[in-house]
Amino acid sequence: GDGQGDGQGDNQIITGGSAFNIKSESLRLGNFRHEDVAVLYAQHTEETGQLFEEGVTANVIDYVFEQTGGQPWLVNALGYEACFRTKENRDRARPITLEIMMGARERLIERRDTHIDQLADKLKEPRVHRVINEMLSDTTGEDATIPEDDLQYVEDLGLIRARPQLAISNPIYREVIPRTLTWTTQVLIPQETVWYIKADGRIDMPKLLSAFQQFFRENGDSWAGRFDYKEAGPQLLMQSFLQRIINGGGRIDREYGLGRRRTDLLVQWPLDQARGFHGPVQRTVIELKILHKSLDTTIKEGLTQTAGYMDRVGADEGYLVIFDRRPDRPWEEKIFSREERHEGRGELRIGVWGM
């Protein structure tokens, strides 16, 4: 077989040296099903004796399938990254745990192999730009008019899936796309992680958001306009700023998409650097919204969404950031921060930041 398969279950896997074939960089291959991923990883175990963690709460195969959506290159690259790239993981007596695989995912995203570079190139194409722009820029969905053939093209590239609803096709791409678009900006932002670390090791989020608010006020329009994806400028700028600070040891997970009217960010920051994600972790939700309706309505809607997301991901802190893009509003009226109480499962305090 050629290792590509056609999604019909007869995916032949290349042997020789490693069960994981990462030669085929192509974006567009038929996706693996869950059982195909399991078979591929079982082949590695058979050849080397190295096991993958298969607990109820921590199942490596489930995680790989969920993160890659079965995209063959990603499935293979994650396996190769976890099992072959670091010396200690080449010790076959050492099982590959969920934590090891999560680290492999981060390195894969950061290293930007050919496959991920191809993805970056595609983002510059006008047809791809039109579709992804709508997904990143917090449009309501009703306003979004994406030509059918553009959608089909981007789906054929494997970047999005149309069912059950329009979404980026897997969590790794969902992470790569904003990072790719913000990379050049991120390196230019003059921010240091240490400025925001409190004595107990936590990140001082209100201090960070105040700094971003000031940065956005001074540079927002000129910087946000630098992105190819201008409509999503404020959200991308916030993500660049955060990424710059969090890159020193934490992770950011993002959720965005057509008709969601918001971008949800989950910032995870290990409090004990030696134990990393095995130890205690500060989990913070930051929701970004563009002001569409009245401020009160936007805040009310945003608080409910932020609280819901906090509940879902088990976060202990939550913030709502509202961008007022109306050109006739002076900054004095846009800039504010206050704490709101939200009654849900118990009372939550959520910081609201306007800019």
Rank of each mutant, 00 (worst) to 15 (best):
T114F: 02
A167V: 09
D138V: 10
E81T: 13
K122F: 14
R275Y: 12
G201S: 07
S294W: 08
F65P: 10
G279L: 08
N76G: 04
R341I: 11
V128N: 02
R345W: 14
A120S: 14
I61K: 03
V281A: 03
P178G: 02
Q50V: 12
I109F: 00
L119V: 05
R85P: 01
V128D: 03
H342Y: 15
I252P: 04
C83V: 15
L78H: 01
E343M: 15
G308D: 15
E134F: 07
I335S: 12
G201T: 09
R345Y: 15
I245V: 12
I290E: 10
E142A: 14
T97R: 11
L288D: 07
F241H: 02
V56Y: 13
R262N: 07
A315P: 14
L166W: 10
R349F: 11
L303C: 11
I22C: 04
S18M: 09
D36T: 01
V187Q: 02
E301Q: 12
G233Q: 01
G346L: 13
E66N: 15
R112M: 03
P206D: 10
T263L: 02
M238R: 01
L303H: 14
K334H: 02
S137N: 15
N89I: 05
P126W: 00
L119I: 07
S222E: 06
L209W: 06
E110P: 00
T114W: 00
M310N: 08
E25Y: 07
D200Y: 05
V60M: 06
M101F: 07
H129S: 03
S210V: 13
V321M: 15
V176H: 05
M205I: 15
H115G: 12
L295K: 09
A42C: 05
G79D: 10
E47F: 11
Q213Y: 03
L265Q: 07
S240N: 00
E53T: 05
F227T: 00
M355G: 10
E287C: 08
I177P: 03
L303E: 11
I177M: 04
T145D: 11
M135N: 04
D138A: 08
T193L: 01
A274Q: 15
R283A: 09
L291H: 02
K207M: 12
H292N: 09
L237W: 01
F241C: 02
Y256N: 01
R312C: 10
Q243V: 00
G225W: 00
K122D: 11
R112G: 05
G276N: 11
E46D: 14
P206H: 09
F84W: 09
